[in-house]
């Protein structure tokens, strides 16, 4: 009994530990979300913002902004497009991060920290500055665009601009989110037990079979974690299409920003934000659900070289 009592933190202790982060989440996440949900049911003000909540003694709450969202298909289309960009970004990130993460996981301890440092190095400079850097890299006078267009010219093709295009947006989306895929994937791959691969090889598996039957399924928790970290922010992004995209490349993040800052239709902006959150959460939930089926035994996956 005494042992149990010692190991159970007191009620006060528990509150002291979990209190501050909880308070932070309530003040800066739960309350604003609640305000946004409330705003989505209100009427836009005459000159932007919100109309008074109580008008002529009556509570002014309505579903008009929701009705507008569901009646104008253009918004669903933008959602679909944003979803597509985010999905493509996630897929490209997986493809690029996988070899990188396994290279780092397999390199000697000495170089590992250095390589990880290089992966997170971009975070040391400002997000917007990095996006503007792509503007220069993809600009019409930069080597990349000139080379591409020279090659196109050989094939008798007209020159194409790289900047202000879906291409530019995607390249930058992948570039910005790549570390978020590399890090969880590395953390997963680094824990893999070499004895399992030796055993698979001993049992007749060639290099591809060892990857596909052992390494890849065991890395799925890392892939899902990375996918969530890439997909969710990529889904709502507005800065990259703003700076690098053409008029066609507006994503849902841009539309939401527009609603709040330019059109100043706060209720409709709130509706779009809520839909964005719900779709992203649903997607993350789906990924977690799929992952659970594959997350059988993380703890027994370890062992030592025999």
């Amino acid at each position: 009994m005494i042992v149990v009592a010692v190991h159970t933190p007191s009620r006060l202790g528990r509150w002291l530990v979990s209190g501050p982060p909880l308070a932070y989440l309530i003040v800066f996440f739960a309350l604003p979300s609640l305000i946004m949900v409330l705003a989505s049911f209100r009427t836009p003000g005459e000159f932007g913002g919100l109309a008074p909540l109580i008008e002529e003694g009556k509570l002014d709450l309505n579903l008009e902004s929701y009705a507008r969202f569901f009646s104008e298909s253009v918004y669903a289309q933008i959602f679909l497009k944003s979803f597509g960009y985010a999905l493509l970004t996630t897929l490209f990130c997986i493809t690029l991060a996988y070899p990188l993460a396994s290279l780092i996981a397999r390199s000697s301890r000495r170089y590992r920290d250095l390589l990880l440092l290089l992966v997170i190095l971009p975070f040391w400079s400002n997000f917007l500055i990095r996006i503007y850097a792509w503007m220069i890299l993809l600009g019409p006078n930069a080597a990349l665009a000139r080379t591409v267009n020279r090659v196109l010219a050989w094939f008798g093709h007209d020159p194409v601009p790289l900047l202000f295009s879906a291409f530019a947006v995607l390249v930058c989306l992948v570039y910005v989110h790549l570390p978020f895929m590399v890090l969880p994937l590395y953390a997963n791959l680094e824990k893999h037990d070499q004895a399992l691969l030796d055993a698979a090889q001993d049992l007749g598996a060639n290099a591809w079979q060892r990857f596909w039957r052992i390494t890849f399924p065991l890395s799925l928790p890392g892939v899902y974690a990375g996918a969530a970290l890439v997909f969710i922010p990529a889904f709502g992004i507005f800065a990259i299409p703003d700076i690098l995209g053409g008029p066609e490349d507006s994503l849902i993040g841009n539309v939401i920003k527009q609603q709040f800052l330019e059109t100043r239709d706060w209720p409709f902006g709130s509706v779009l934000s809520i839909v964005l959150t719900v779709v992203a959460l649903a997607f993350a939930g789906l990924a977690a659900w799929v992952a659970r089926g594959n997350l059988r035994t993380p703890s027994s996956a370890r062992g030592s070289r025999a």
Binding site: D198, A199, A200, D202, L218, T297, P298, S304
Partner: peptide, 14 residues
């Protein structure tokens, strides 16, 4: 055509 039994068993956990 030989098989090894590893000290850590090396069973595939998944």
């Amino acid at each position: 055509p030989m098989r090894m039994v590893f000290q850590s068993y090396a069973l595939f956990p998944h």
